[in-house]
Nucleic acid binder design. Structure first.
Lengths: 205, 205
DNA sequence: TGCCGCATGACAGAAACTGTCAAAATCGAG
DNA sequence: CTCGATTTTGACAGTTTCTGTCATGCGGCA
């Protein structure tokens, strides 16, 4: 059954490579057009013309035009969740989160100009902001699951959802603050500072 | 200049009343159709047919089909912000928020079936969830402004945004938890409980 | 080489919008 | 009440996103 793969360079066949290549081309062409002309002003037709595929093919790769942007912003949330899940459960959650970030998001955040371009796109395209928030909302559910296993609590209980939401919130807020005062500082410190705020009560009784 | 208005019953002219009436009719017809058939399955044509106006007119009242749902969910966020702004600045923020809620959201939350219908709509229509989150995100900015004036901090500083975000987060989470275990309990206690959680650190260092 | 499967392209069409312009209703003044 | 100005509406054409369908063709495999 299993063929021995020594040259794992390109495990899948030629067709699969071509497919992945087309996907990348679409994403890249779209990114350039979006950053140059804006999201709304860029039609799917513009994108497929640049890559020379049919518009029907585009929608086979990306269910909607918005999904294309989600793919662009694909920070490594999956890696983050994996990394977090593998931290020891008795470690302080803040520490676990920081360590997990170092092995996942931190890499994407190195490319500040890329992050800046992406945040600009979100900044002045309400529909994309909405889509991204929905993505964050989805991730919140996943994160709540991981957190619940650490405290063997209810993944859909108030506490888990609140903590997960707060972590996502801190990250998003940090990115926004970093973006607003756009010196070319590193992003990570902003995030760690925002996460640090969560160790103090947000409301005083 | 000013004509003396004794019968302030209907200050604006006949046209304005008619306009408002059409708006209400559109909203109500849409609500029924959405709740009955779902959001996606309901076309703008269905809605305008029910009210007997042209589809072009619909888009003069609501920029998009989504905005119609936002109007349906119009909880009194404006009232909440006003009420909060008028609380004494030296009062504990949690208390201020609770009092402000009592005079704004609490009223809308009385109609649990209505809230339930709306949350159901959000639950199984991703695009509406996204839109609603964007709305929440906008409100977060406004709330951060009010909070900043109390602590004379920076409205777009990390702390203000974080606190505002956490409050919105607590409310949304409470609504979701209430919705998931749908006994016909009152909503307010869920919200107050979630807000109470914010008085303890969400992360331990 | 020759067959199979899947990706692609070329349609046609639904549905959400938008611009434009003429008809109709409302309003304000005489 | 009438007339003209302003506003609201409807009709129409057009763009854009997105979907179903079906025939063509390329890559994979014997």
């Amino acid at each position: 059954m299993d063929t021995v793969l020594l040259a794992t360079e390109t495990p899948p066949g030629l067709a699969a490579r071509k497919k992945e290549r087309t996907r990348q081309q679409l994403a890249e062409a779209a990114a350039q057009l979006f950053y140059r002309n804006g999201y709304d002003a860029t039609t799917v037709d513009d994108i497929v013309t640049a890559v020379d595929v049919s518009s029907r093919t585009f929608f086979r790769y990306f269910p909607t035009k918005e999904d294309l942007v989600v793919a662009l912003g694909q920070t490594s949330m999956g890696s983050f969740l994996d990394a977090l899940a593998q931290r020891p459960a008795d470690e302080a959650l803040l520490t676990s989160v920081q360590r997990a970030i170092e092995n996942s998001f931190a890499l994407s955040w190195k490319d500040t100009t890329r992050v800046c371009s992406f945040l600009t796109l979100l900044h002045d395209t309400p529909v994309l902001r909405a889509r991204w928030l929905e993505e964050s909302n989805h991730n919140r559910g996943l994160l709540a699951g991981v957190i619940a296993t650490r405290t063997d609590g209810d993944p859909s209980g108030t506490r888990s959802l609140l903590i997960a939401g707060a972590i996502i919130l801190a990250i998003d807020t940090a990115l926004q603050v970093w973006f607003d005062q756009d010196d070319e500082d590193e992003i990570a410190p902003f995030v760690y500072r925002a996460l640090g705020e969560l160790t103090t009560p947000l409301l005083t009784p």
